[in-house]
């Protein structure tokens, strides 16, 4: 399967997994009324197909991480989730302060 994945994705798999997690968690955040209120966000929120994609995205990041091997992959997946969560929360906090 690795032959079909571009080298840039394969080499930076944990980084891509991290980015995927940031997108998923940001999308989750804008679905929460409390966070929307804090941010003053009134834009569109994912619904229907968008939610399905958001559910599938963590699996995609898991698949990406697995290219580093099954054991390391699980660790990368969990580790990038933790880091992405903190980065997303800090990013949203910065947006709050700007507002």
């Amino acid at each position: 399967m690795k032959e079909f994945i571009p080298t840039i994705v394969l080499d930076g798999a944990p980084l891509w997994a991290f980015i995927t997690w940031v997108i998923v968690l940001s999308a989750h955040a804008i679905q929460q009324p409390k966070i929307c209120r804090l941010l003053g966000y009134n834009g569109p929120v994912p619904s229907g197909l968008g939610k399905l994609v958001l559910l599938a995205a963590p699996l995609m990041s898991l698949a990406l991480c697995m290219t580093a091997g099954p054991t390391a992959g699980i660790f990368y997946w969990c580790g990038t989730f933790s880091l992405a969560g903190v980065v997303t929360a800090l990013g949203l906090a910065c947006l709050q302060s700007h507002r």
């Binding site: 968690l25 989750h28 929460q32 409390k34 966070i35 969560g85 800090l90 906090a93 302060s97």
Partner: peptide, 23 residues
């Protein structure tokens, strides 16, 4: 609901609690 909620500019106790929960 509060998964990525962090309010460092709120009252100090709230900010610390958010940080505690976030970590």
């Amino acid at each position: 609901p509060d998964l990525v909620l962090f309010r460092p500019f709120a009252a100090r106790a709230r900010a610390w609690l958010d940080g505690h929960i976030l970590a």
